[in-house]
Simulated scan of single mutants.
Amino acid sequence: MSAGLVVAGPTAVGAAVRPSPVEQAVVWLNDPLNWTNPGGVVDRLTEHLTISALAVLLGCAVAWPLGLWLGHVRRGGGLVVVLSNVTLAIPVIAMLTILPLTFLGFGQAPVVVALAVFAVPPLLATAHTGVRQADAEARDAARGLGLSGAQVLWRVELPLAVPYLAAGFRTAAVQVVATAALASFVNGGGLGQIISAGFGLGMAVGGGQILAGGVLVAVLALLVEGVLAVVERAVTPRPLRKPSRWAAVLRRPTATGRA
């Protein structure tokens, strides 16, 4: 062997380069089996949407009647603030730790209850504010026509409060969808199970799966936000709709011809 010949070491040739978590996530998301297999994305997405829908509906069943009634009688503003602050002060992870130890047990039931508590503040506050902000002249005219208090609430105040109710529902739904990933802590299902399974594999192997699960939750929350924004505008009476940003820009007077 000549003196100028250099022999490469065993690690210099053929060394495997581990893909980055982003590359792993792309590969994981493009694997059809990760979507269609039992416990895959389709199953977890169905669980996630079911949990979120039940939680928001339960929150509406509790918050809307209370908020509408308190707004109608023009009382309870302080109570609404206290209830909202108390429910917001309780971390969802704390409730997910405590509720499974009750009669609810583990699974989806404690997750739905915990997320419903989390959904109550925006639903309660917007329902109360929407009725309180109803036009006073419309209420007085309804009473002058002989409508009862319940009829005034149902026929006058509630339709005028629809934009507030829709905004509160939209806020609560997006918050619940984003937070429902924590359901995996109590074996409650949802897209969080994908993230938990990735952590179980370790960052070196499951980093891509963790990232893919996070992306799925974020995209779902954005989709819910977009869909409910369209629904909110659709259910709001036309006279009560706020002009879109582009419409406001187009309506601005131009500087052409001004001195």
Rank of each mutant, 00 (worst) to 15 (best):
A53V: 14
A109M: 07
V80F: 05
T102L: 04
G77D: 09
G77Y: 07
M95E: 07
L79V: 06
A125D: 11
R132Q: 15
L88M: 13
S84W: 06
G39T: 03
P38K: 09
G77P: 02
T36R: 11
G59V: 01
L79P: 00
C60S: 13
W64L: 14
C60W: 05
A89V: 05
A55S: 14
A125S: 14
T50S: 13
L123M: 04
D135L: 00
G39Y: 09
H72T: 01
W35R: 06
L124T: 04
T36A: 12
L66D: 02
P65C: 04
V86M: 10
L104Q: 10
L115T: 10
V56G: 09
A138E: 08
L79R: 01
A94T: 15
A114G: 14
V56Q: 03
A89P: 04
P100N: 09
P38Y: 08
A55I: 03
V112C: 07
L58F: 04
P122C: 08
T97C: 08
A109Q: 14
G40T: 04
R44N: 14
A94V: 14
L88D: 13
A89W: 04
H48L: 09
N37T: 13
L66N: 01
V131R: 00
T46S: 12
A55E: 06
V80I: 08
H72K: 00
M95Y: 07
A63E: 00
G77C: 05
T126E: 15
M95T: 05
V82K: 04
V81Q: 15
P38M: 06
H48W: 11
V56N: 08
R75I: 05
L88P: 08
P110H: 10
V111Q: 12
T50I: 13
P110C: 10
S84Q: 04
N34Y: 06
L88A: 11
V62M: 10
D135S: 03
A142E: 03
L115K: 10
I90S: 05
L123Y: 11
V120Y: 11
A125G: 11
I98W: 12
G39P: 04
P38A: 12
T97M: 15
A141G: 03
W64R: 01
P65S: 08
D43S: 11
T129W: 07
G105I: 04
R75K: 13
V81Y: 14
N37V: 11
T102W: 09
A127E: 01
A125Q: 12
T36G: 07
L123T: 03
L49V: 14
A94L: 14
V113W: 07
